[in-house]
Design a protein around this nucleic acid. Structure first.
Length: 681
DNA sequence: TTATCCGCTACGAAG
DNA sequence: TAGCGGATAA
């Protein structure tokens, strides 16, 4: 017989004194102050979703809930950071015990604590897409598959196949049949590659991004005692962007909630744009069914956009068949200016138009911070970047290549990964291939020597220079090889780990700086990137935490360091629509609205209704980012298309709303001068 | 086996 | 235009 006993912890702080009634509208108030239990909040674009969630956290704290009982899950690091900050500024409570983060980062946190139960050590490495590709290439290479006779899927295709399988829970066989019929004849081999890949990850003590979710789920399923631990701890679960959860994420929540915790899931079906990584709108639709006594709150007042923009958005999304009927009402006054529809001759004219209009808006008093250029895919920002640069307009771009995915950053990180996880095959080989005379094959050989030597799996820290006495080191590499021993020894003084920042210093000065000078023409840039990384690293005491952050933080919102002076200067934002989700600006330029660019050509070809509807939701997300002014533009000709000069059709999404909702601008060039914009009135 | 050069192709979104 | 795979030189 167990006895229930309650531990009364001292309250984490005084009441916040927030007047919830006054600071929230009725719809928000209802959700924020709802009693514990299960709740689904359907919150339209711009309706104060973040506000609702952060006030909910504040409300829970005010009710005397211990911060450590709250788990706040988001999809992006930026959202996590923003919410934590807003909560911090809202309440006087100490919230350091509150867990908030992306699903992946929370998974990582849990897995580090219990890695042993799954046959890993807590210093497991995290493989990014790049590492996954190399590992898969190595797996395929070792399997004697004759890729010459018939085309075998390339590593990046394999990555998406396996990822889709794991994130949707569908069988690989079915995924192949439906999405990759042309590889169906390789079915047996693909399954073998998948299994060998899983074994290699285990052997090398590494997890990929999908593992961070799936292994957490596995941990909970196979270890009821551990699950119970977290069920007890997290009495209040809050999930942002619930419509974008995939089967693994939704199951994780359901499992955690099964112990009787409260759950508040917030989302908007019209903004579900991640099905390509397994997101399933069905999760939000069936949420009330899966959770007993679930209450549904709808928040439909839009505070963001003027009626002209909101009506256009509503009309655009209405073209989708599968959606909840929902009409957002704008709380704002009619502005009297319609969104602009701007056809332009070609991409460079489009870039010039955007740049010129940005300057005009700034003269009218709109700060650069309040403007954004959005596009479907990163490469579509190229001309605009060049134009802004040449006109001296400062911009911040959420770049396609993340900071930590650049080769030189990954090279340096490989050293740190290797000292924390000596079974890290990818890092070991990566370091070796920096040396002259060692390529793919050489690295492979030395890796197996290294494994044979036993140092890879030894319990205690190796004497590095001695441990590296391996057979088969080419003469050309001998000098650097010796140097490597010293560097690794320096990184692990007395068998413990040096500080992350010092480790990077050792790598840079001990060896990598020479490599940079020898291999790249932009040595200075790369060196300063690494110095930036060093500065960022010195905020960390714990090497494992630093490496986790490096893998989990996108350069998009977490560019390490970020030059301080630059942060003060006013900048306009360039961003993909996916990354713009949840953000807002006074003026938004949505560019490249041409069929084939947006909607994306592959989706047009696929001729799949569901995919097209998701694309349209993406369009909707873009439109609803704008508060006051919206410019929809497209180039008529694409001269840089690889099939030569191509005349483009305007995006089919532009047909989804009546022409009267926009004002068409005729832009004509004036030569020898800047472009002139003829406004109809 | 590695390093380099050259022609050909494809150009999606994120943790 | 970069990023590759294949061919060739070292």
């Amino acid at each position: 017989m167990a006895r229930d006993y309650t531990l009364h912890r001292k309250p984490t702080g005084p009441a916040s004194g927030i007047d919830y009634r006054a600071e929230l509208n009725d719809e928000q108030f209802g959700a924020v102050t709802s009693s514990p239990g299960r709740a689904l909040v359907i919150a339209g674009a711009g309706s104060g979703k973040t506000r609702t969630l952060t006030y909910r956290v504040a409300y829970l704290l005010d009710q005397g809930i211990d911060a450590r009982h709250i788990l706040l899950l988001t999809f992006t690091n930026k959202a996590a950071r923003e919410m934590t900050e807003r909560v911090r500024s809202l309440v006087p409570h100490d919230v350091s015990a509150l867990w908030s983060g992306t699903f992946h980062s929370i998974g990582n946190r849990i897995l580090r604590r219990h890695a042993e139960e799954l046959g890993f050590t807590k210093s497991f490495s995290i493989l990014d897409t790049d590492d996954q590709k190399s590992l898969l290439a190595s797996v395929v290479g070792s399997m004697a598959i004759d890729t010459k006779v018939r085309r075998f899927p390339k590593a990046d295709v394999l990555v998406s196949m396996f990822s889709l399988e794991r994130n949707t829970g569908e069988a690989l066989k079915d995924i192949l049949a439906v999405r990759y019929p042309y590889f169906d004849s390789w079915q047996r081999e693909i399954h073998e590659v998948r299994d060998a890949y899983a074994r290699r990850k285990q052997e090398t003590n590494s997890m990929d991004f999908d593992d961070l979710l799936l292994k957490t789920l596995e941990l909970f399923r196979d270890h009821p005692d551990i699950l119970a631990l977290y069920q007890q701890r997290f009495r209040h679960l809050l999930v942002d962007e619930y419509q974008d959860t995939n089967s693994v994420q939704s199951e994780l929540i359901d499992l955690l909630a099964a112990g009787g915790s409260s759950v508040m899931a917030v989302g908007d079906d019209a903004q579900s744009i991640y099905s390509w990584r397994g997101a399933d709108m069905g999760n939000i639709l069936s949420f009330p069914k899966r959770h007993d006594g679930c209450r549904v709150f709808k928040i439909e007042t839009n505070y963001r956009s003027v009626p002209e923009i909101l009506e256009l958005s509503n009309a655009a999304i209405r073209a989708n068949r599968s959606r909840f009927e929902k009409d957002l009402r704008s709380s704002r006054e009619v502005l009297g200016v319609k969104p602009a529809l701007v056809p332009l001759e070609d991409p460079s004219a489009q870039a010039q138009f955007v740049a010129q209009r940005i300057l005009e808006l700034r003269d009218e008093g709109v700060p650069l911070e309040e403007m954004a250029v959005l596009y479907r895919a990163h490469f579509q920002s190229l001309e605009i970047q060049m134009e802004l640069t040449s006109r001296g307009i400062p911009f911040a771009i959420t770049s396609g290549l993340r900071f930590f995915e650049q080769a030189h950053i990954k090279d340096v990180a490989a050293f740190l990964r290797l000292v924390t996880n000596r079974r890290d095959e990818m890092s070991f080989k990566r370091i070796l291939q920096l040396m002259p005379g060692i390529g793919n094959k050489g690295a492979e050989k030395l890796w197996s020597e290294w494994r044979k030597s036993g140092a890879a799996t030894a319990e205690e820290a190796p004497d590095w220079p001695a441990a590296l006495a391996l057979k088969g080191v080419p003469k050309k590499a001998a000098k650097m090889w010796e140097q490597l021993g010293y560097i690794l020894a320096e990184m692990t003084p007395g068998g413990s780990f040096a500080r992350p920042g010092d480790m990077i210093y050792s790598v840079l000065e001990g060896m990598y700086d020479d490599h940079l000078k020898a291999s790249y023409d932009n040595y200075e840039n790369r060196r300063s990137d690494i110095e930036q990384l060093m500065a960022y690293a010195s905020q960390f005491e714990d090497i494992l935490e630093f490496l986790s952050q490096l893998s989990l933080l996108g350069g998009a919102d977490g560019e390490p360091g970020g030059k301080r002076e630059e942060q003060d200067t006013e900048k306009i934002t360039l961003s993909s629509i996916h990354q713009a989700k949840g953000l807002e600006w006074k003026a938004v330029f949505l560019v490249w609205l041409a069929d084939g660019a947006f909607p994306n050509g592959r989706i047009i070809e696929a001729d799949d209704e569901a995919m097209m509807e998701e694309e349209r939701r993406l369009f909707y997300v873009a439109l609803t980012r704008a508060k006051d002014e919206l410019y929809l533009s497209y180039p008529l000709i694409n001269p840089k298309s690889y099939s030569g000069e191509v005349i483009q059709r305007p995006s089919r999404f532009l047909d989804d709303f009546p022409k009267e909702m926009v004002e068409e601008w005729n832009v004509s060039p004036r030569w020898g001068d800047s472009w002139e914009v003829d406004e109809p009135f």
